[in-house]
Each structure stands twice: as C-alpha cells, then as structure tokens.
Amino acid sequence: MDVLLSIYGATAQGLTWTIFALGVFITFRILNYADLTCEGSFALGGSISSVFVVRLNLNPYLSLFVALLAGLVAGAVTGLLHTKLKIPAILSGILTMFGLYSINLRIMGQPNTSLVGNKSLIFMIKDLLPTAAELGIKDIVLQTGVVLVVGLLFSLIAIAFLYWFFGTEIGSCIRATGNNDTMVRAQGVNTDLTKIAGLAFSNGLIAFAGALVTQTQGYADVGMGQGVIVIGLASIVIGEVMFLKAKNFAVKMLAIMCGSVIYRIIIALILRMGLDTNDMKLFTAIVVALALSIPTMLKNKPLFNRKEAQR
C-alpha cells in the first residue's frame, strides 16, 4: 500500500515537472542548444509565483502567466547574449542563470518563501471539492489527486500548444534552425531571431513550470533550480528510449511526459529501497550519462559480431 502511495505521489510530481522537461526539450533537442538559463528561470518562476500569492495576495493562476512572461524575457536575454554579442551558447546561459540568482533574491527579498497559510493553487481547487473525510479517503490522497489532475491538464495543454506552434511557418523555421542554420538563412530567415524566439519560448515554459511546482510543493527556494537541467534531460532520454520508434512530434512530447513520470517513480522506489537522499544527484547524473551514451554505442555496434563477420 505504501509503495502504491509513493508511486501515486511520484506520478503527480512527474506530471507537474513535464512542462519543465518540454522546455528543456525545445532547447536541447529542437534548437540543439545546451541552455543552462533554465536553472535560473525555473527558480524565477517559483520566486514570482510565491511572492504573488504570499506578499501581494494575488491569484495564483495569474502568477503562472506572469512567471511565463518573465521566463520569456530571461530566455530572450540569453538569446541576445549569444546572437548579438557572440558569446558562446553555454556561457550565455550560465551568465543569465548567474544573474537571475540575484534577481530571484530581490524578488523574494529572502532566500525562500513558504506558501503555508496562504491559498496556493492546489488548495484553491481542493476547496471547491468535497473534503477528504466526506469522500472517505485520506487527505494526502485527495491532495495528490488534485496535483495529478492539474499537472496532467497543464501538460496536455502545453503539448497541444507546442504541437501547433512547431507546425506553423515560424515554428518550422525554429526547428530548421536547430538542424542547419546556414540553410535557414539561405531561405531568407533571420536565424538570430529564430534562436532568440526558441530560447524565449523554452524559458517561458520553464518559468511557468517553476511557478506550477512552487504552487504544488508549497514553497519557493532561490536554489530550487540548481541541477534541474539534469532532471529535464533524464525525462527526455527516458522518454526517447521508451518510445524509440516515435516519429510524430506529439508522440515524442507525450513520451517526454511519460519519461518525466517514470523518472520520478524510479527515484521514489530507489529512495524507498534505502538510497541516501544526498546521493540522489550522483545517481541521476549517472543515469543520464548512461542513457545519453547507450543509443550512440548501439549505433556504432557492428551488425554482426566479429566471429560471424570472419566467416
């Protein structure tokens, strides 16, 4: 029963993190750009969302969209650093991420903000439902259920939106830019703009995800973005390995959603088996390194083994 409960919780968590993984997917796979801005913009979304609810007493839904806008700006800054000032891709992201740390501290005025005692998005929805006692279930089950449905809903909306956007003329240009920017320029497209747009989109989604995660976990921390890019990559590669044959763009994104959930389930199960929480990051890093290298190794494997080839 306990195991089922932790899988249930992990599923809900994986779904709230799906939009984050989709944001990383846009830069890492579509733009072919390892963007570290995400670590800053994730915490940016969280900071804005927490301050909106705790300090300003505003609607948590509104905070998600303000976070989205702020993330767009953060991504655009990285894009400008890279395209206009010619700073290498990874360094541009690191600079923005580094700067965002101070900005996030400024926004919150303190290193972390707790939503306890205030209406988070999850509690607002829970208030609309009958209480757990009336339903005859544990409160935690009801609350996790709300998180799960909210996460799933937002993920599906994001996937539908991205499917539409990357099918449009502008979206096609962004996809092609990640493939071959010389060709895209030769077709009359300003590739500086497509790169900036892609980075802005990605970080907008990531900040939105940061806000959503803050609303579900009940607090924001200036360090909440640290190392999250690895979690995003883990979700992407797990999804890709599971759906190797996926060609359709929507299916690929659904695979990432599954990847995000499965990553959380794996972590939950391993923690239950007694892995020290402190070792979790090392574990994740190893999993991602393996998952990224195995497809390449398989590709280079000869079709027959040597003995057969000699015959």
Binding site: T168, E169, I170, S172, R175, A176, N179, M183
Partner: peptide, 24 residues
C-alpha cells in the same frame, strides 16, 4: 535540414522571400 521531411524542407524554401507567420 536533415531531421526534417522532404516536404518540410520544400515548404521552407517555398516561402523564401515571403512573410512567415502563424499559418500552418
């Protein structure tokens, strides 16, 4: 663009010199 379909590549070229928007 290697990761895109033949028709998608052609569609990019078909719009050379034209305004690109949010149409399909």
């Amino acid at each position: 663009a290697a990761n895109m379909e033949i028709q998608e590549n052609l569609a990019l070229a078909y719009r050379r010199g034209k305004r690109r928007g949010l149409r399909w």
